[in-house]
Design a protein around this nucleic acid. Structure first.
Lengths: 206, 206
DNA sequence: AGCAAATCAATACAACCGTCCGGTAATATC
DNA sequence: GATATTACCGGACGGTTGTATTGATTTGCT
C-alpha cells in the first residue's frame, strides 16, 4: 500500500493538502485563465508559502496535471451519482448529464471555463491531452451505455448506432456549452436545442 | 481617406506588413499555443526585429486583437466564396460550411487550433470576447439564411425555427471539431454524424 | 531519547517578459 | 532644401517567472 493512502501519521494529510492547493489553482484559472497562473499566485490563494507548494508539487506541470485529474474526477463522480440514484429512466439521466455541459449556475460555469482552458492547453501539451482524453472517453462510454439501456427498454430505435448517437449528443452539448460560455446564445436556447434533440431521439422507437 | 489605404509612398505597405507579422504570430499560436507567444518569438518568426514589431503594433494586446480579426476575416471570406460560386443547392453549401469546422487537412486543423486558443483566452479577456463573438454571430446569420433558403425551396420543413436549427448545427459542428482536434473521435465519424443530421433535417420536408 | 522523514519558510538566481527610448536612415511634403 | 513623417534598430529597464537550495521545525516510529 502506498504512502498516499496513509490515514495516520506523517503524510496522512498529503493528498488532502494537494487537493487544497489544486483548488486554489482552479480558482485562479477560473478568474484569470490558465496562462495567468503563477506558483506564487497559487500559494497566495491557498494561503500557504511558495515553499509549501513546491513541497507538494515538484513542478508546475505536475501541479497542472494533478489539477486536471482532480476536476475530472469530480466530474465523473457527479455523473456516477446521476446514474446511481433511484430508478430514473434513461432519458432523464441522459438529460441530466448533458445539461451539465451547458452552464447555468456559477459553479457549472466555473467548471466549464476551467475545462475550456485545459482543452486549449491540451492542444500543445500531449501529456495534458492524454489525461483530458481519458475523461472524454469515460463520459462517452457512459453515454453509450445509457443509449443502449434506452434501446433495451424500447425507448430508442435499435436502428441507431449507440456510438454514433453518443458522439453526436456529446458534441452537441459540448458545442452548446462553449457557445453559451462565450456569450453566443443563451442557456435557455441551448437547453431547448438539447431537449429538442432528445425528443427526436426518443421518438424513433420502436 | 485614411492612411491605411495609401497605395504609394511611405505607409503604403503598412497593412501588408501588419498582416505578415500577424501570420507569424498565428504560426506560433498553432505550434506552441497562445500563451507561449512572446514578441521576440514573433519577430524571429517574421524575420524582422523586435523594434519592427513594436513599430507596427503598439502593444501585444493590439497585435493579438488584430490577428484575431485577421483570421476571422479569412474565415468569413472563405464562407463568402462557398456562398457565391455557381448555383449550388443550400444543402451542399451548408455542408461545406459546417465541414470547415471539422478538421481534415492540416490547414483547417491549424485554423481550428488557433480558434480554440483564442476562445480560451476570450473567457478572460472581454475585448477579445467581443471580437470573437462578432465572428460567431456572422457565421450564425449565414446559417440561418441558408436554412431559410432551404425552407423556401421546400427542402426543409417550415415547422422548424431557422434560428434553432442554425444554433444546433453550429454547436454540433463546433463540438465535433473540438473533439476531433483533441483526438477524441475520428474526422470520419464526425463527418458521418454531420451528414446524418443533415439527412434528418432535409428529410422533414412535406 | 533519538533518528528519519515530512513540512514549510526564506532566499537566491538565471531567464525571460513587455515596454520604453534614443538614434538613424529613407521618403514625402512644402 | 528644410521639415515632418515613416520605418526600423538595439539597448536598457523594472518586473515576474519557475526552480533550486538551504535551513528550521514538527511529527511519527522504534
Amino acid at each position: 500500500m502506498g504512502k498516499g493512502s496513509r490515514t495516520r501519521g506523517l503524510g496522512a494529510r498529503h493528498e488532502d493538502r494537494r487537493r487544497q492547493i489544486a483548488e486554489a489553482l482552479l480558482a485562479i484559472i477560473n478568474r484569470h485563465g490558465l496562462d495567468a497562473v503563477s506558483l506564487r499566485d497559487v500559494a497566495a490563494e491557498a494561503e500557504v508559502s511558495l515553499g509549501a507548494v513546491q513541497h507538494y508539487f515538484r513542478s508546475k506541470d505536475e501541479m497542472l496535471l494533478f489539477a486536471l485529474d482532480y476536476i475530472s474526477e469530480r466530474g465523473t463522480e457527479r455523473v456516477r451519482q446521476s446514474l446511481g440514484v433511484g430508478e430514473q429512466p434513461p432519458r432523464a439521466v441522459l438529460r441530466d448529464i448533458l445539461a451539465e455541459l451547458v452552464p447555468t449556475d456559477d459553479e457549472r460555469r466555473a467548471e466549464l471555463r476551467i475545462a475550456t482552458a485545459f482543452t486549449a492547453r491540451a492542444l500543445v501539451s500531449p501529456k495534458l491531452a492524454d489525461h483530458l482524453r481519458a475523461g472524454y472517453d469515460a463520459l462517452h462510454d457512459v453515454l453509450v451505455l445509457l443509449i443502449r439501456h434506452a434501446q433495451d427498454a424500447g425507448e430508442v430505435s435499435t436502428d441507431l448506432d449507440p456510438e454514433r448517437v453518443a458522439a453526436a449528443l456529446f458534441a452537441l452539448a459540448d458545442g452548446l456549452g462553449t457557445h453559451v460560455l462565450i456569450g453566443h446564445g443563451s442557456p435557455e436556447t441551448a437547453h431547448a436545442v438539447l431537449d429538442e434533440h432528445l425528443d427526436r431521439l426518443f421518438a424513433t422507437a420502436p
